[in-house]
Design a protein around this nucleic acid. Structure first.
Lengths: 244, 244
DNA sequence: TGACGCATTTCTGTATACAGAATAGGTGTG
DNA sequence: CACACCTATTCTGTATACAGAAATGCGTCA
């Protein structure tokens, strides 16, 4: 960080378009006309089309048979399956880390992140949500790297980017969940047990823990989908979920 | 099938470029100049760049920091991890199919495919390799759909497309493996046990079987990587594997 | 002889122009 | 009044032109 990263037009289009979709600017199924969209994003069609390709692979857009793209929609099962799948691949990362013996430096870093999370949420009346989201993402990123395999790391990251499957997908709405603190304590307990299992070379335990940990996200999702509809506008992507 | 699929320039570029890379036309690490490559592929730079984007997401190309792409290379661990990961996600598809109860029509179709495989390999002296590759791919495709989840299906397919992770990646060289028939019989046994576990709602067993089944590919890879180097030219992608 | 700097050349990223296909709207006919 | 056909417009897919950046080679100076 600190880099004056000159933003490319493609990145600008990806970020802009993803933001528009996730915040519900289009209703699911809408066809996206390229010319108008490019103008709205302040770029030309060439980088926009690259951005659309990317969002297709992320699952946010669907290619139509007669050309063009439309905004994808997800039902409850899609979200739960994506979360389950994230648990499975994170579980594989954890298991392989345990079996192979994790890098001590990365383990120490993971422990440190957990300490920082403790600090960020120490005062139940004044939780630092931004820090929590950032640190939680950091922990999961380290976890994906613990197996020492670029392939695993890469695919964990990819699946985490599936719509609403990310470890931080629902934190923005979690603050409204009644027993949020309880959920937080539970999550931290699982984080610590996970590291303990990995350092103890308990592969099966680490895998099971990672899976169950991901399923916490299901609980949050189950709450949010029935909560105040106004939440759909503040939890990114929730507007794309069909009730079917 | 039967469609007179008008091939788009993008598909042409994807297939052409993927073929060139997999058959070892470039040594790993080569930077790919767009203009020359486009001309060689008989298309313009626009569809070629889309194709390169796609191959980057497939893992065959790597984006360079200062622009452009180069051909990726894989070491033995990369391949084995990709195979392991395929086993894991196929295992998840199998487990979820068992837990949820599979679609009877799909199950019947899977059984039929296994019967066809038996026929294709019935005569040890005259095995129909093309049919075997096609039917094996078909079986794994049905397996990915058995859980009834588009998300799972899609991601299984994606991970199967990682370089050298596909269920059919090594069959082209398998014919040279000494005890190929034994391996084939073993694979078919696992296929049948897998379906039995799924229809019996034995989720854990189905998951374990799918994982172990994928690891058969490791054996084939372990053989081929030390076999006659000439094989590198006939097994797609093998030329990209570094010995390190 | 080696290293540094400048100029040239190549390459990528982006914008735009163009052609063919698909779709919508309007009109004519049964 | 409904349905079909034709036309016009819009949109996508592809090619190409252009600008800025990176790399390479050469010349000069220490």
């Amino acid at each position: 960080m600190g880099d004056t990263d000159r933003i490319s037009q493609v990145e600008k289009a990806i970020i802009g378009l993803r933001g528009m979709i996730m915040s519900g600017d289009f209703i699911a199924g809408t066809r996206l006309p390229e010319t108008a969209l490019a103008e709205r994003l302040g770029t030309s069609r060439t980088p926009l089309r690259q951005a659309m390709d990317r969002l297709v692979t992320e699952g946010l857009l669907e290619r139509m048979t007669n050309g063009g793209c439309r905004v994808a929609s997800f039902n409850l099962d899609d979200i739960n399956d994506a979360i389950e799948l994230r648990g499975v691949v994170e579980g594989t990362a954890a298991r392989l880390a345990a079996e192979r013996g994790p890098d001590p430096d990365l383990m120490a870093e993971a422990e440190a992140v957990l300490g920082d999370i403790d600090i960020a949420v120490s005062d139940p009346d004044q939780i630092d949500f931004d820090a929590y989201v950032r640190l939680n993402a950091k922990f999961h990123e380290i976890l994906s790297a613990l197996a020492g395999s670029p392939v695993i790391r890469r695919e964990v990251e990819r699946i985490s980017n599936l719509p609403l499957a990310s470890p931080s997908a629902f934190v923005r709405g979690q603050e409204l969940i009644p027993d949020f603190m309880a959920s937080l304590i539970r999550a931290q307990g699982q984080h610590r047990a996970l590291l303990e299992a990995i350092s103890g070379r308990e592969g099966a335990r680490a895998e099971a823990l990672a899976r169950e940990h991901a399923r916490l996200a299901r609980l949050n999702f189950a709450f949010l989908k029935d909560a105040d509809p106004r939440l759909a506008t503040c939890v990114p992507g929730l507007a794309l979920v069909t009730s079917s």
